[in-house]
Design a protein around this nucleic acid. Sequence first.
DNA 1: GCTGCTTCTTGATTTTGATCAAGTAGGTTT
DNA 2: AAACCTACTTGATCAAAATCAAGAAGCAGC
Lengths: 188, 188
Amino acid sequence: MRVIDNIEIVIQPTSEEKAALEKMLRPRLLAKNELFLKEGEVCTTIGFIEQGSARLFYIVDEREISKDFLFENAIIGSFASFFSQLPSSLNVAALEETHILEMDYRQVMYLYDHYPAWQKLGRIIAQDQFIRSERREASLLKDSPELRYLSLIEEHPKVFKRVPLHYIASYLGITPETLSRYRQKFKH
Amino acid sequence: MRVIDNIEIVIQPTSEEKAALEKMLRPRLLAKNELFLKEGEVCTTIGFIEQGSARLFYIVDEREISKDFLFENAIIGSFASFFSQLPSSLNVAALEETHILEMDYRQVMYLYDHYPAWQKLGRIIAQDQFIRSERREASLLKDSPELRYLSLIEEHPKVFKRVPLHYIASYLGITPETLSRYRQKFKH
DNA sequence: GCTGCTTCTTGATTTTGATCAAGTAGGTTT
DNA sequence: AAACCTACTTGATCAAAATCAAGAAGCAGC
């Protein structure tokens, strides 16, 4: 989700609508490894990443399994928990010192109900999130771990520059040992 | 997505809004195995399943991999292709003779732009689709094939009653042989 | 600089599910 | 009913990745 991009590309907020949004955003600084959202909590706040990065992960049998990595302009939080206002099944933590602009659930609902442009943007964001999730779902269903590794290098090389390898391993659905062997195998 | 349920539960359409929707829905009958959408085509039509069932699947190396199964009240089509109006990467086919109510992309956009209730419903449908996709993504990432099999039996036993096993196998990310062995193993 | 921790790599072995191959059972068509 | 097709099962072998184990390399704090 590149919200900032979408905003000006797909909808035309009036300056009043823009002002209403900006007034609600408050800056916040997350320390490295600080949890933005913990499993079991309801995600009542959602934010845009201005500078930095974050990781979404599940905890299964004491182990962390990375679901996604977020960088600048992405929305930080659990959409599933935020939309439903039910406890989150995933954790969200900053990978490094990260600057965000956040707003609360009630503020977002207020924008939806009072500004058609933001209601529409909400729909488009949800659609984009869905498309992104479906693409990931497809890669987990159709592709071998090895192909997922090669695709990630090809399509998102920056992930390897900014995210520790053992986090990437669980994202690919493999162990760190297997990732290490892929790297060896495809090193040229 | 249980649209019909959602409609009355989460939003309050006026009778005018309801009438506008109903006027656009046209009935259609899909024969068993008839394709509703083919890979490469843009999904310009979306429908509600009144009676029957359908399967979404990818084709990889000449093989079909089932992504999802749809039953009564579900929305049939590719959301990703429909939302983006880009070629679909998946196929949609009826599993049996299936009655649907369908409408076109332009009609849906018209509803979104002219009726706040439908714009809002569009957002909520997109959110629900996202949550559903994320849950599936999580099971593919976190769970073993065996656990996915056991969860499917537990949570959606009706799938085993209405869908051929070899379709279910690829949905679980395993071969028909492995599914057959799980069934043997857990038969009590 | 050293110490200790975390990350990453490498090797040996085991496990899981895929593949290959064959056969059985149910339905449908003629 | 016979022939055919599709769906499903069962068995033997193979391949991929996990696990177990150990070590190397990078870094943070003292």
